[in-house]
Structures are given as C-alpha cells and as structure tokens.
Nucleic acid binder design. Structure first.
Lengths: 188, 188
DNA sequence: ACCGACATGTAAGCTGTTACATGATTCC
DNA sequence: GGAATCATGTAACAGCTTACATGTCGGT
C-alpha cells in the first residue's frame, strides 16, 4: 500500500477530500497510480483507523457533502519516518523491450515500422510533458524555494527519461541499418 | 498476463521447462518479472490449454522428470501478432520520487543524506550492469547479427536509464546547494 | 438531451508477490 | 551438516484496475 505515503504527503500540504486526492494523484506522472476511487477511498478509511488522519463532513448547498481529511501529528511522524527510510531503485516495466526482444521474426520493413511507431509515441509524450511544463500547469506546492526546486527537478526527471528513450530509439534505428541481415543484405 | 509473450518468445528460441524459463526470466532486467513459480507454471498450463504450446515429459536418472514445453505453429503466430501490435510507453514507478516530493520536512543534511544514499544505490546498480556486460554473461540468442544487435541495444537501454538517473541525482544534489533555505541561508 | 464537474462509495477481478511443500543430489 | 542445484507445483494475499451505483448542477 505505497499510495498511503503519497496521500499522507498531499494531506501534509493541505487538507483534502478523496475527490481532491484523485485529481492530485492523476495530475503528475510521479504519482504513478491510476487514481481510481477504490484505492483512494479505502486507503483513507485505513489511514483513519490507524489514527494518521482525521475527517470532518462539510455540507454544501448545491453539491454533495465533502469529507475533508486532515493529517494528524502521528500521520506527519509516519510520513517523515518513511521519507527518511532507505530509497529504492526505480522500476521500469517496458513491454516494448519484450516486443523488441522477439522482433527478429519480422522483416526489416516491419521492424522499422514498429520502431517508428514507438519513436512517434515517445515524441508525443515528450511534447505533452514539455508543453505542460512550459505552460506552468504542473503541480508544485512551492512552500519555499527548496520545495519548488525539488518539484521542478521531479518533473525534469520524467522529461529526461523520455528524452533518453527517444535518443535511444533513434540510435537503434540508425544503427540497425548497418547490421547485415539474415539473407546477407544490409537494411531493407 | 503479459508474461505470456515473454514465455512464448523464449520457447520460440528453444524448448524449455518451467525451471529453465524461471532462470531465463530472472536473467535479464528487460524481463522485469520476479520469475516466481506460480506465475510461470500456471501460465504454461494456460498456454497449453490454448494450444499455443505442447509438452512432453522427459524422465531423468538422478533428477525429477522434466516437463519440456515446445511452441506450436499457433503459438508462433500468436507471438508474431503481438510483436506487431501497437507499442506502449514504458512505465516508470519510482517511489523515490514520492519520497523526494515530501522531503521538504527534512533538514538540509537529512535531505542530502537521502540523496547520497540514492546516488550510491544507482551507482551500485550501474556498476553491476556494466560488469555483466563487460563479462559478456548477458542473455543473447544471437541467431543472426540483427538479433544480436537488438539484444545488445536492449541491455544498453537499461544501462542508459540508470546512467541518466545518476546524472540527474548528481545535478539535483549540486543544484540544491544554491537554493535559499526556509531560514534564508544557503545549503547546510 | 447529453456531457462533464462535483462527490461518495462498492464489487469483481486481474496480476503478481512471498512463502510453502516435496525430495534427490552435489558441493563445501 | 548445511547450502545450493535440480525440478515440480500450490496457497494465500497484496496491490491495483475497470466498471458499477447514485444523484445534483451547469453548460452547449
């Protein structure tokens, strides 16, 4: 239940409802979860049972009542303890690499088509991330310059990963042209 | 059940037992699964039911009998179809970025300690991957020059990702020294 | 008339993990 | 004597996903 700490973190920034948290989680690729209701609402109930958050209902006139969660002292301590715990390596799950691993059954044309499609998807994603950054719509609590810097670097981490991936696939496409084929020809 | 295609791929290379597949899956970071028995053996049973593989028992003198799986024509067609399907973006799940997102509660020293630990872990991983490559112990069917090139590039993809991550964390540690702290001081 | 935002929650299911269970053989 | 390799398989559960269920309000 790793999302627990993402939620505690958001609540340490400001009290939120489940609905708010869903939007926050989906707003940044660093919070990689889908932000589905089930996970968020049940985690909040669990955090409440553990005494890490409190909740209060806020009735509204035109909309359903909001259940606003606030982090407790115990919750802040729990979050702090986790933040200081041993960092773990990032996990990459790239099904594309598995596809590529068994792509030798393809013709040169089919393989390059596959690589071209992948390059296009990466470019699209990169363009989207850069556009978001340019327009300054990325999430950033920015309670002080250091936090602002950290969140900017987190965004940059994602952009850089896709930039690397794009560079890699271009190098791959370029290099494969010079590799002799099974039939002895080069390329095509 | 994405691992299905990883398994079909290995079987398209050579007939294998569940035990063999477990070792193959864990041998390369591209096949990101843990390679646990449950997943592999149950997937093999499912592939068999679907007619994508056949099995035969091979008794041995000193060891338990081996159940050797071989891919069928239907299995090869299924694999080929999947390899040609739309490539998807890689998924990065980096809990460290979540840790970092809420690291503003830490002192400058604690934060740098966390970053130093992360840098050390990445360096260790990178050294391990490079050592494996240097010693040439990486998996590579290499049925022809093109396949050899592809598998080399897959290994390079992983090395490059960690190299990027290392460069990023160094840049972060360096940059954070010049960011004014909450108390107005720089660094420390 | 329909769609999206607001707001809460539940059901069912898929994927993948750790750990268990068995048992011979080989190496240190 | 203990650990690792060979080899099969199962049980229990953690984590996360899609889809369902309900209902009001505001815009096109």
């Amino acid at each position: 239940m790793d999302i627990k700490y993402a939620i505690l973190g958001f609540l340490s920034w400001q009290p939120c409802t489940g609905y708010d948290l869903k939007k926050l989680v989906t707003s940044s690729p660093a919070f990689y979860w889908s932000g589905n209701n089930n996970q968020i609402y049940t985690t909040l109930v669990k955090l409440h049972k553990e005494g890490l958050v409190t909740d209060r209902m806020q009735p509204q006139e035109r909309y359903p009542a909001r259940r606003i969660y606030t982090v407790t002292e115990a919750g802040l301590a729990e979050l702090r303890g986790w933040v200081l715990s041993e960092p773990e390596l990032p996990q990459y799950r790239a099904m594309f690499l598995v596809q590529l691993a068994w792509a030798d059954a393809l013709s040169a044309g089919e393989l390059d088509g596959l690589l071209a499609k992948y390059e296009e998807e990466i470019k699209l994603q990169l363009r989207m991330l850069r556009e978001r950054e340019r327009r300054g719509i990325n999430l950033n609590p920015a309670r002080n310059p250091r936090e602002k810097y950290i969140w900017t670097m987190i965004d940059e981490n994602h952009i850089g990963r896709y930039a690397y991936e794009l560079e890699w696939v271009r190098r791959l496409r370029d290099g494969i042209k010079n590799v002799p084929q099974a039939n002895g020809k080069k390329g095509e």
